[in-house]
Design a protein around this nucleic acid. Sequence first.
RNA 1: GCCGCCAUAGCUCAGCAGGUAGAGCGGCUGAUUUGUAAUCAGCAGGUCGGGAGUUCGACUCUCUCUGGCGGCUCCA
Length: 638
Amino acid sequence: MPDASRITVIAPDGRRMSIPAGATAGEALAEWDPAHRGQFLAALVDGRPVDLSFRIDRDGTIAPLTFDDRAGRDILQHSSAHLVAKALTEILPGALPTHGPPTDDGFYYDFDVRPLTPTDLDAVRTAMTESVRRAEPFLRREMPRADAERLFGANPYKLRYIADVPPGEPVSVYDTGSFVDLCRGPHVPDTGWLAGVHILGFSAIVPSDAAARPLQRIRGIGFPTAEGLRSYLKLRAEAEARDHRALGQKLGLFTFVDEAPGCPLWLPHGMVVVRELERFVTEHLREAGYSEVRTPLLFAQSIYETSGHWDHYRDDMFLTVSEGRTFGWKPMNCPGSMLIFRSRARSYRELPMRLAEFAPLHRAEASGTLHGMTRVREFVQDDAHLFVAEDQVEGEVATLLAWIARAFTTFRLDWTYDLSTRPEKYLGERETWDRAEATLERALKASGVAYRLSPGEGAFYGPKIDIHIKDSLGRKWQTGTIQLDYQMPARFGLQYQGSDGQLHTPIVVHRTILGSWERFFGVVLEHTGGRLPPWLSPVQVRVLPVTDAHGGAARAFADELAHDGRRVEVSESTESIGKRVRSAEVDRIPYVVVLGDREVADGTVALRRRGAREAVAMSRAEFRTLLADRVHRREFEP
RNA sequence: GCCGCCAUAGCUCAGCAGGUAGAGCGGCUGAUUUGUAAUCAGCAGGUCGGGAGUUCGACUCUCUCUGGCGGCUCCA
């Protein structure tokens, strides 16, 4: 006979546990795995996330949620957000908490409150620490809607969330000390679990609803332990040291001046990298049947009216007036390519026509959005436009996806795909959009990659697949893009004669692979910490004569390397060899060769690869071959 | 563009109740001739981001402009 006062719960490992009815989830989990009970932040009971204090009254399943699960991590972040709200409302009693969700990299809480100051933040930190010390429990209460409405009567934001609770469901709130927040839960048991919470900063946020009041956002991140937080802060400090803006300065790659905000000045070493990137991409263009073109930087307003950019992006364009006529600096290359297609009658035999253009583009990005090389006002894209017939679209997209994978693998980057669909402001017919979106999705599925759906994020003329890579601080940047466009060709009146003798409008695929040299290079710099692969390094080899006596041999060997096409420097012997080796490391030179009596005598070099502890001896011919090989293969490491 | 913060030598930074500035690195010169992450010495280099105001006097306080940083928004 089953004992009515006991129930059976099944743990993740399949173990069936008999526990008293009404035992809490925390008690059940502690019995299941006592050794790890301190890591259980919350529980899943019958697949539903609940507090550890949740009382189980019937048979079912149970599983722990820890920081290693996304759901558990989110619970810790969300509880951290509550802690921030508790602290802020203690300091500024008039502050109205709105919402405080977990995010991909931490949490935030938005408040309707006067603009915050760093002093406020210090006070918030102090109050949080105090609450953590007191280990104040998160207590769940469920109440009828009317009670909740009374409780949050002074907070219109919370009233709105209460209205969103499905009818018939009770409204739940959590008490933390004297702070009470509307919340679905669950939470960690008490604030003592939040010793690893860190406030990252604050800022005003502009709600998408223009009529709404601006809110103040406090951002933070939580870890289960203070040690976890410490190692995160350490990693973050290391990442900051890899900031491409500092590296670009230090390595003499690019610079900026006040007089051209957002417009990079490429220094000689940086320009070497740009040319190598161009070469990398151009080799593919040749293989894949592209033609390169060049079109004007300035077009009259009417061209942008035709393309649709005038209506959508006029405010973000640089304009110039000449002889009473308004011209716009081109913010993208598409109109130029459209005009080239239209410059004479076209046949289906010419399709796909692939026109590539690497031209400077100008966009009047809002000043507050500029960010080193990753968000600039003047840049060059590895841009191309493919004029295709409808039945060619999918094949072209597949080729592009394959090339993207190859290109990003060369740089050892992790990348992600987003499929962005029809936005609110769009051109054309819905059916066309649906068809285009379906085509892109088919191509993605066929190539077997994982992708994310970004509803409403498409360009105004068509859906797109975007490639994103992350910088050293985890900020995501769009690089490559594949955009299907059924609109612009029609607006420009593009036509080709088909095999059926009829005139047809081509479809245009707008695409970039690396995106822009500027942004791509910025992210690559951060990923490599400036240790660029040899093929990209502005200086590939530095030759160090041990003394003046070896200067001639060093210069002669450098000449041989230069003759091979290597980028090589000689570091003369006015400094100690130790100093020059150090400088070469600091300058991130991939190969340092030292020439002294020994090497001159036996025709070798002492080779030190970047980051290596010691040098190895190698014949000069052997070194030249090794280097040529690694550069030509575009190997990542020296 | 919005909120907050920041701006001192080429770079990284120190400085001051308001009395016109200093270090390290880098640069230049000299000495040293060096064997794998910093040889030594000397010198040059700044109207303290621009403008205005307060003051006997402003790098320092106030306002403003410009640029940058962290977010937000945006990203054709």
